[in-house]
Amino acid sequence: MGKRIGYARVSTDDQNLDLQRDALALAGCSVVYEETMSGKSADRPELGHCLKALRSGDTLVVWRLDRLGRSLPDLVGIVSRLEREGAAFESINERIETTSAAGKLIFHVFAALAEFERNLIRERTRAGLAAARVRGRKGGRKPALAELQIREIKALLKDPEIQVASVAARYGVSRTTLYRYLSKNIHER
């Protein structure tokens, strides 16, 4: 039988890990990786160390599902990785574990819901873009410079005494943006 390794996370410094520590200790975790980091952050170093420490036969234990994944698709990805590597997963609060057939079924229902959610978002995005195109709108950012501004910039830059950096600052854009607009207009003619 493998080790039970815990992962505990709180989002801010003023939150306390004690509740999670106690629950993970009661669940038989010999090692607990802890971090204070927003769940939205993709860079969670302690989670990375925890996942590297897991071996085939080990079980990753968390207090609640939201302590592990940033989103349902992220959670599914992490647990799928564990499964591929021969490790199990357990969430104490939700009573989900992937060591039994019933636990795997529940988790895969979550995975199916996550896939369904991704497909719905994709369909809504496509429908919204199509509806916008029908109304004559195109996606993307609004242009940083209007046609009139581009003409003014060209006129200003004909004077060798005027520096590109000062023109860019005057119009509130970077020199790179200025050059991109100028080269774009040259190629369009």
Results as ranks from 00 to 15, higher is better:
Ala23Cys: 10
Ile92Cys: 02
Asp66Tyr: 12
Asp22Arg: 15
Ala53Pro: 03
Lys52Leu: 11
Gly136Pro: 01
Tyr179Leu: 05
Ala114Thr: 00
Ala169Pro: 05
Thr12Pro: 02
Asp22Leu: 13
Phe116Gln: 10
Arg137Met: 13
Ala144Phe: 06
Asp18Pro: 03
Asp18Ser: 12
Gly103His: 07
Arg44Asn: 09
Leu47Ala: 10
Glu123Ser: 14
Tyr7Met: 01
Val10Gly: 08
Asp22Tyr: 15
Ala23Trp: 11
Ala42Tyr: 12
Ala23His: 08
Ile92His: 11
Asn16Ala: 07
Glu85Gly: 11
Asp43Ala: 14
Ala23Phe: 03
Leu148Thr: 11
Ile5Gly: 05
Val109Asn: 07
Leu105Ala: 15
Leu157Lys: 10
Ile92Tyr: 09
Val10Ile: 14
Leu145Tyr: 04
Arg4Asp: 04
Cys50Trp: 01
Tyr7Asn: 07
Gly48Thr: 09
Gln149Val: 00
Val62Asn: 05
Val62Trp: 05
Thr59Gly: 08
Arg189Phe: 07
Arg81Cys: 08
Leu129Cys: 08
Asp159Ala: 05
Arg151Ile: 13
Ser56Asn: 11
Ala87Asn: 04
Met37Ala: 14
Arg44Met: 07
Ser71Trp: 03
Cys29His: 08
Ser91Thr: 01
Asp58Gly: 03
Val173Trp: 01
Gly28Ala: 11
Asn119Ser: 14
Asp58Lys: 00
Leu120His: 13
Leu72Gly: 03
Glu46Arg: 15
Leu47Gly: 04
Ser166His: 11
Arg64Tyr: 02
Glu85Ile: 03
Thr99Leu: 11
Ile186Thr: 14
Ala42His: 11
Ala132Phe: 04
Ala88Glu: 00
Asp58Glu: 05
Gly6Ser: 09
Asn119Asp: 15
Ile96Gly: 06
Asn93Met: 13
Leu54Met: 10
Met1Tyr: 12
